[in-house]
């Protein structure tokens, strides 16, 4: 028996919004420690890694490890039927080929349930080594989204250069070039507005705009985003989901031809 109950179904809506452009379907691996998802996009250039800890749920029970393959567009359709304030309960039997989503209004005046067929997905898992990154940047997630959107107008790729002084986002194309520099802040009062840089050595890497812009669909999940970079290693874009876990995106850097 698997059962997970979360007071805020809005969180699930936001997670689905953040990943459904990159992934058509994905396997949710459920265990005692929580729900995990790891999947690459169709072109195998980026990877989504989601972790929702069992202790972040209001109720969590997982008697046996369970892998639930789900079509994310269909899952999003179901979550559209829930109000943001509804409590969601996800249920499945041990060997089930269906999953049930139950939505309960706060005062129990409305209870709805939706059953969805599970899929058998043959997904490739990648081993992601622990990395000591040369640069770890924390900045407002909205600012990162804004920069990616703005620069996408001018080029297909964004170069992210990180030094002790700050981070520079640059692109160029037929129109010309665009550069945005973000300095480290000393704003200790408003943590969500701060920019912090932990740097071992400066790094400069180039990434496809299209993917960075997809990742920023996760912006409503967290006020801050963390970018981790090292030379010749995929970028990690991480959104912390308060009290529940994290959503990470990995993106292979472009290389000189």
């Amino acid at each position: 028996m698997f059962e997970a109950r979360l007071t805020a179904s809005a969180t699930f809506k936001k997670i689905l919004d953040a990943i459904k452009d990159l992934l058509n379907e994905a396997s949710f691996d459920c265990s005692e420690s929580g729900i995990q998802l790891q999947a690459m996009d169709n072109s195998h250039v980026s990877l989504v890694s989601l972790m929702l800890r069992s202790d972040g749920f209001d109720k969590y029970r997982c008697d046996r490890n369970l892998t639930m393959g789900m079509n994310l567009a269909n899952m999003a359709k179901i979550f559209k039927c829930a109000n943001n304030e509804d409590t969601v309960t996800i249920k499945a039997q041990d060997d089930a080929d269906i999953v049930t989503f139950m939505f309960e209004a706060k005062k129990q005046e409305k209870i709805s349930d939706y059953e969805m067929k599970l899929m058998n997905l043959d997904q490739e898992h990648l081993g992601i080594p622990e990395t000591d990154f040369s640069c770890v940047i924390r900045m407002p997630s909205g600012e990162f989204a804004r920069i990616c959107k703005d620069l996408a107008q001018f080029g297909e790729s964004i170069m992210i250069s990180c030094t002790k002084e700050g981070v520079k986002f640059s692109t160029g194309g037929d129109i010309g070039t665009a550069n945005v520099k973000i300095a480290q802040t000393n704003n200790f009062e408003k943590e969500e507005e701060s920019v912090t840089i932990e740097m071992q050595e400066p790094v400069s890497l180039t990434f496809a705009c299209q993917y960075l812009n997809s990742f920023t669909k996760a912006t409503p999940l967290a006020s801050q985003v963390q970018l981790s970079m090292s030379d010749n290693v995929p970028l990690v874009v991480e959104y912390q989901i308060p009290d529940l876990g994290h959503l990470r995106f990995y993106l292979a850097p472009k290389i000189e031809e």
């Binding site: 250039v45 980026s46 472009k254």
Partner: peptide, 14 residues
């Protein structure tokens, strides 16, 4: 602007 490798150039399948 640059070649786009896949993630398999960096991570191994498990």
């Amino acid at each position: 602007s640059g070649k786009q490798p896949t993630l398999m150039s960096f991570f191994k399948k498990t």
